[in-house]
């Protein structure tokens, strides 16, 4: 972590002002932290420990317990691939293999260019559209390996266009 530039601690101040003194608010504070930074930087967690008078071990303990929290930054496009029962039955494993083949990343990894991260998630609750993945808040349903590849290529192409426009 020491190689990273220090985080801007002011981003988390509003949440700390609101919740630091309310018992039982640690999860809420961490959710706000992730909202602000995209993940939970270690130096921010240390700052939260200080402000809430909580041992840092407790904070990291909570941060690592829940699936929602990330300790590392994610790529520009976060692919959340549903691993629910209906998706499993309808072939989510093939979709996962196609994404891995297309991008060269597995569950929990980010592409070297920082464009895509892949995360397997528990049920997204769109079981009748299974298999399903969610990217940047948008749900893509009734996937086939081919359709999944196409969606990723379109996203990447969109980024290239954006870059050119700049």
């Amino acid at each position: 972590m020491s190689t990273l530039a220090p985080s801007d601690l002011s981003l988390i101040e509003p949440a700390l002002d609101a919740y630091a003194d309310i018992p039982g608010s640690l999860i809420t504070i961490l959710q706000e932290t992730q909202e602000a930074y995209g993940y939970l930087p270690m130096d921010v967690m240390e700052h939260i420990a200080e402000r809430t008078h909580t041992p840092i071990a407790t904070i990291v303990g909570v941060a690592t317990f829940y699936a929602q929290f990330r300790l590392e930054p994610v790529g520009k496009h976060l692919i959340m691939l549903c691993q629910g029962t209906a998706c499993h039955v309808n072939g989510s494993e093939l979709i996962s293999a196609a994404i891995t083949d297309e991008l060269g990343i597995e569950d929990g990894q980010t592409t070297k260019d920082g464009m895509f991260s892949l995360k397997h998630v528990a049920c997204l609750g769109c079981c009748s559209l299974s298999p399903v993945m969610m990217i940047n808040g948008r749900t893509y349903g009734s996937l086939t390996p081919d359709k999944a590849r196409k969606i990723l290529r379109e996203l990447a192409a969109g980024d290239a266009e954006e870059d050119e426009a700049k």
């Binding site: 018992p23 039982g24 829940y66």
Partner: peptide, 24 residues
């Protein structure tokens, strides 16, 4: 109170722990 993703929090005492801001 928004949960943070842990199946075990469906168990009522784990849910209470989580409500209190702890590991569920």
């Amino acid at each position: 109170k928004a949960g943070a993703g842990a199946f075990v929090c469906g168990e009522e005492t784990a849910l209470i722990e989580s409500l209190e801001g702890k590991r569920g």
